[in-house]
Amino acid sequence: MPELIAKSALEGFSAQHLAGATLAEAEVGPITSVAVYPDGAKALAKGLKSIGLTFPAPNAFIEKKGTRIVWNGRDQAFLTGVVPPTLEGAAVSDQTDGWAVLALGGPGAVDVLARLVPLDLRLSAFPVGRVVRAPVNHMNAVILRTGDYAFEVMVFRSMARTAWHEFEAAMQALAARAAMKS
Protein backbone atom coordinates (compact mmCIF):
# COMPACT_ATOMS: atom_id res chain seq x y z
CA MET A 1 0.00 0.00 0.00
CA PRO A 2 1.37 3.42 -0.86
CA GLU A 3 2.15 5.80 1.93
CA LEU A 4 -0.86 8.08 2.45
CA ILE A 5 -0.43 11.69 3.40
CA ALA A 6 -2.64 12.79 6.27
CA LYS A 7 -4.19 16.18 5.61
CA SER A 8 -6.26 18.33 7.91
CA ALA A 9 -9.74 19.29 6.78
CA LEU A 10 -8.66 22.83 5.90
CA GLU A 11 -5.18 22.14 4.61
CA GLY A 12 -3.90 25.15 2.67
CA PHE A 13 -6.36 27.64 4.14
CA SER A 14 -4.34 30.39 5.75
CA ALA A 15 -5.63 32.41 8.69
CA GLN A 16 -7.86 35.37 7.83
CA HIS A 17 -7.80 38.64 9.76
CA LEU A 18 -10.80 40.88 9.09
CA ALA A 19 -13.26 43.02 11.04
CA GLY A 20 -11.41 42.50 14.32
CA ALA A 21 -11.71 38.76 14.00
CA THR A 22 -9.32 35.98 13.12
CA LEU A 23 -10.39 32.79 11.40
CA ALA A 24 -8.05 29.80 11.37
CA GLU A 25 -8.13 26.06 11.53
CA ALA A 26 -7.72 24.75 15.07
CA GLU A 27 -5.57 21.78 16.02
CA VAL A 28 -7.35 19.88 18.76
CA GLY A 29 -5.69 16.50 18.40
CA PRO A 30 -7.63 13.25 18.57
CA ILE A 31 -11.42 13.51 18.85
CA THR A 32 -13.17 10.60 20.57
CA SER A 33 -16.89 10.21 20.99
CA VAL A 34 -17.93 8.95 24.42
CA ALA A 35 -21.57 7.81 24.52
CA VAL A 36 -22.60 6.67 27.99
CA TYR A 37 -24.46 3.36 28.26
CA PRO A 38 -27.59 3.28 30.39
CA ASP A 39 -26.26 2.79 33.95
CA GLY A 40 -22.70 3.24 32.68
CA ALA A 41 -22.07 6.63 34.28
CA LYS A 42 -20.31 5.26 37.38
CA ALA A 43 -17.88 3.07 35.46
CA LEU A 44 -17.15 5.90 33.03
CA ALA A 45 -16.49 8.36 35.85
CA LYS A 46 -13.73 6.04 37.11
CA GLY A 47 -12.02 6.00 33.72
CA LEU A 48 -12.31 9.76 33.28
CA LYS A 49 -10.88 10.33 36.74
CA SER A 50 -7.64 8.73 35.59
CA ILE A 51 -7.12 11.69 33.24
CA GLY A 52 -8.41 14.25 35.72
CA LEU A 53 -11.80 14.79 34.08
CA THR A 54 -15.45 14.32 34.96
CA PHE A 55 -18.40 13.95 32.62
CA PRO A 56 -19.59 17.48 31.78
CA ALA A 57 -23.01 18.94 32.50
CA PRO A 58 -25.19 19.80 29.47
CA ASN A 59 -23.82 22.77 27.48
CA ALA A 60 -20.46 22.72 29.27
CA PHE A 61 -16.94 21.50 28.66
CA ILE A 62 -14.11 20.78 31.05
CA GLU A 63 -10.47 21.38 30.22
CA LYS A 64 -7.35 20.00 31.91
CA LYS A 65 -3.92 20.57 30.41
CA GLY A 66 -5.02 20.66 26.79
CA THR A 67 -7.40 17.74 27.21
CA ARG A 68 -11.06 18.52 26.95
CA ILE A 69 -14.30 16.74 27.43
CA VAL A 70 -17.06 18.52 25.54
CA TRP A 71 -20.76 17.84 26.11
CA ASN A 72 -22.48 17.32 22.79
CA GLY A 73 -25.74 15.56 23.51
CA ARG A 74 -27.70 13.59 26.07
CA ASP A 75 -25.21 11.24 27.77
CA GLN A 76 -22.72 11.99 25.03
CA ALA A 77 -19.45 13.93 24.86
CA PHE A 78 -16.31 14.41 22.81
CA LEU A 79 -12.96 13.81 24.39
CA THR A 80 -10.35 15.89 22.56
CA GLY A 81 -6.61 16.36 22.74
CA VAL A 82 -5.79 12.94 24.12
CA VAL A 83 -5.66 9.33 23.05
CA PRO A 84 -8.32 8.01 25.42
CA PRO A 85 -7.46 5.59 28.19
CA THR A 86 -9.58 2.46 28.54
CA LEU A 87 -13.06 3.70 29.34
CA GLU A 88 -15.77 1.42 30.71
CA GLY A 89 -19.46 2.23 30.75
CA ALA A 90 -19.57 3.99 27.39
CA ALA A 91 -19.35 3.38 23.67
CA VAL A 92 -16.03 4.92 22.65
CA SER A 93 -15.26 5.66 19.01
CA ASP A 94 -12.59 7.62 17.20
CA GLN A 95 -14.07 10.62 15.33
CA THR A 96 -10.85 12.53 14.62
CA ASP A 97 -11.18 12.44 10.85
CA GLY A 98 -14.91 13.16 10.91
CA TRP A 99 -14.73 16.72 12.16
CA ALA A 100 -13.20 20.01 11.19
CA VAL A 101 -12.49 22.57 13.90
CA LEU A 102 -12.37 26.29 13.16
CA ALA A 103 -10.96 28.82 15.60
CA LEU A 104 -12.62 32.20 15.60
CA GLY A 105 -10.98 34.79 17.80
CA GLY A 106 -10.63 38.49 18.45
CA PRO A 107 -13.00 41.19 19.67
CA GLY A 108 -15.04 40.96 16.44
CA ALA A 109 -15.61 37.21 16.67
CA VAL A 110 -18.87 37.53 18.55
CA ASP A 111 -20.28 39.83 15.83
CA VAL A 112 -19.26 37.36 13.13
CA LEU A 113 -21.09 34.57 14.95
CA ALA A 114 -24.11 36.82 15.46
CA ARG A 115 -24.56 36.88 11.69
CA LEU A 116 -24.71 33.12 11.41
CA VAL A 117 -25.92 31.62 14.68
CA PRO A 118 -29.43 32.44 16.01
CA LEU A 119 -28.29 32.42 19.64
CA ASP A 120 -26.98 34.99 22.09
CA LEU A 121 -23.27 34.18 22.22
CA ARG A 122 -22.15 37.35 23.98
CA LEU A 123 -19.89 36.77 26.97
CA SER A 124 -22.68 37.62 29.43
CA ALA A 125 -24.94 34.88 28.05
CA PHE A 126 -22.28 32.42 26.90
CA PRO A 127 -19.28 32.47 29.26
CA VAL A 128 -15.99 30.60 28.93
CA GLY A 129 -16.46 26.87 29.46
CA ARG A 130 -19.84 26.72 27.78
CA VAL A 131 -20.66 24.84 24.60
CA VAL A 132 -23.77 24.73 22.41
CA ARG A 133 -24.98 22.57 19.62
CA ALA A 134 -26.45 25.09 17.26
CA PRO A 135 -26.89 25.78 13.56
CA VAL A 136 -24.33 27.89 11.70
CA ASN A 137 -26.71 28.99 8.99
CA HIS A 138 -28.06 25.52 8.19
CA MET A 139 -24.98 23.57 9.25
CA ASN A 140 -25.08 21.61 12.47
CA ALA A 141 -22.20 22.72 14.63
CA VAL A 142 -20.74 22.45 18.10
CA ILE A 143 -19.62 25.87 19.33
CA LEU A 144 -17.27 26.26 22.31
CA ARG A 145 -16.43 29.41 24.23
CA THR A 146 -12.73 28.84 24.89
CA GLY A 147 -11.81 32.37 25.95
CA ASP A 148 -13.26 35.85 26.44
CA TYR A 149 -12.50 36.51 22.77
CA ALA A 150 -12.10 32.98 21.47
CA PHE A 151 -14.45 30.40 20.06
CA GLU A 152 -14.00 27.01 18.47
CA VAL A 153 -16.56 25.76 15.99
CA MET A 154 -16.75 22.06 15.18
CA VAL A 155 -18.51 21.03 11.97
CA PHE A 156 -18.71 17.81 9.99
CA ARG A 157 -15.53 17.48 8.00
CA SER A 158 -17.48 17.34 4.73
CA MET A 159 -18.70 20.87 5.47
CA ALA A 160 -15.34 22.36 6.45
CA ARG A 161 -14.97 24.55 3.35
CA THR A 162 -18.58 25.69 3.45
CA ALA A 163 -18.16 26.69 7.09
CA TRP A 164 -14.94 28.53 6.26
CA HIS A 165 -16.67 30.34 3.40
CA GLU A 166 -19.62 31.34 5.60
CA PHE A 167 -17.38 32.80 8.28
CA GLU A 168 -15.16 34.53 5.77
CA ALA A 169 -18.18 36.10 4.03
CA ALA A 170 -19.57 37.30 7.36
CA MET A 171 -16.18 38.84 8.22
CA GLN A 172 -16.00 40.58 4.84
CA ALA A 173 -19.51 41.98 5.27
CA LEU A 174 -18.64 43.32 8.72
CA ALA A 175 -15.41 44.85 7.44
CA ALA A 176 -17.25 46.51 4.53
CA ARG A 177 -19.84 47.95 6.87
CA ALA A 178 -17.15 49.29 9.20
CA ALA A 179 -15.37 50.90 6.23
CA MET A 180 -18.56 52.72 5.22
CA LYS A 181 -18.99 54.18 8.70
CA SER A 182 -15.51 55.69 8.85
Binding site: P58, N59, G73, R74, P118, L119, R133, A134, P135
Partner: peptide, 11 residues
Protein backbone atom coordinates in the same frame (compact mmCIF):
# COMPACT_ATOMS: atom_id res chain seq x y z
CA UNK B 1 -34.71 20.59 28.38
CA UNK B 2 -31.06 20.18 27.35
CA UNK B 3 -30.24 23.14 25.10
CA UNK B 4 -32.50 25.82 26.55
CA UNK B 5 -34.72 28.21 24.62
CA UNK B 6 -34.34 27.74 20.88
CA UNK B 7 -35.87 29.05 17.69
CA UNK B 8 -38.53 27.01 15.85
CA UNK B 9 -36.20 26.63 12.83
CA UNK B 10 -34.06 24.20 14.83
CA UNK B 11 -36.90 21.70 15.24
Amino acid sequence: PLCGERDRREF
